[in-house]
């Protein structure tokens, strides 16, 4: 055998491993890798997105038929009802898809490979980002459907978009950790809903009230209190989830 060929030129090697829990940029890079991986799988399979969009579209259509039949006028109560229906559609559509991230890892039995390779915080952050991205798409679609089909008139588009965004942040922060908790349980969907609702009811009430104000009034001012609450709730839930995730992940 040709000796030179046997030893061969050294190919570009895998570089020295960097401990991902040692540096924040490495942790963020790992989290981004988890997000990109999940997004790629979601775009190829569309398990979560299809279910969520279908649910939102069906709900908007049914609400549109109902409100047209009633002949809802633009009163303060009517705006509150529209806002409630919008958030109900958004929430239930989100619930159908947000647990997929961890449940799919468990069902496909890829959890062990991920646990051995990825730092827990990176997994949480990656899944959180995916849920946030799904909610952003769902929020945009649900809002558009309600504006077109239910004829919701938005007084302050800026406040409306900010409230949908802050509400999405709340949903993503709370449901990501819950999805990790229920991934190994039986009756996953039912358990997810049961655990999620107590966590989500307080911010939902505020989001509904804030959204009704954004439909009624021009300007950000009237909805500012609701926005502040939603952002604070999101931050608290996110930080608590990040701290607790390692125990859930390694349980």
């Amino acid at each position: 055998m040709d000796r030179a060929k046997d030893t061969g030129p050294e190919a570009p090697a895998v570089e020295r491993p960097v401990r991902t829990d040692a540096a924040m940029p490495a942790l963020l890079a790992a989290a981004w890798a988890v997000f990109v991986k999940d997004l790629r799988i979601e775009l190829r399979t569309r398990y979560a997105l299809n279910a969520m969009v279908l649910f939102a579209a069906c709900t908007a259509l049914m609400v549109s038929v109902g409100t047209t039949f009633i002949g809802l006028r633009r009163t303060e109560e009517a705006l509150l009802i529209q806002s409630s229906l919008l958030w109900a559609a958004f929430l239930f559509a989100a619930i159908t898809g947000l647990s997929r991230g961890f449940v799919q890892e468990e069902e496909a039995r890829t959890m062990a490979a991920l646990r051995l390779a990825a730092p827990p915080a990176a997994v949480y952050l990656g899944k959180f980002l995916l849920n946030l991205a799904l909610l952003a798409v769902l929020g945009a679609i649900t809002s558009l459907l309600f504006i077109v089909l239910v004829r919701v008139q938005v007084g302050s588009p800026l406040a409306f978009v900010a409230l949908i965004g802050a509400g999405s942040l709340c949903l993503a922060a709370a449901t990501t950790i819950l999805a990790a908790i229920i991934a190994r349980a039986s009756f996953k969907s039912a358990l997810f809903a049961v655990l999620a609702f107590p966590l989500l009811v307080p911010p939902l009430i505020i989001a509904i009230q804030g959204t009704a104000l954004s439909l009624e009034n021009a300007g950000l001012g009237p909805a500012l209190g609701a926005l502040q609450f939603l952002v604070a709730y999101s931050v608290a839930t996110f930080v608590a989830s990040l701290m607790l995730f390692r125990f859930v992940w390694e349980a």
Partner: peptide, 24 residues
């Protein structure tokens, strides 16, 4: 019972696991 991602290619799988391990 070690399963990798069926919806990704082999190279995508390895690239992903290298990234989360902090390998370039």
């Amino acid at each position: 019972d070690l399963m990798l991602y069926r919806d990704l290619t082999a190279r995508e799988n390895l690239r992903f696991f290298a990234a989360v391990r902090g390998l370039r």
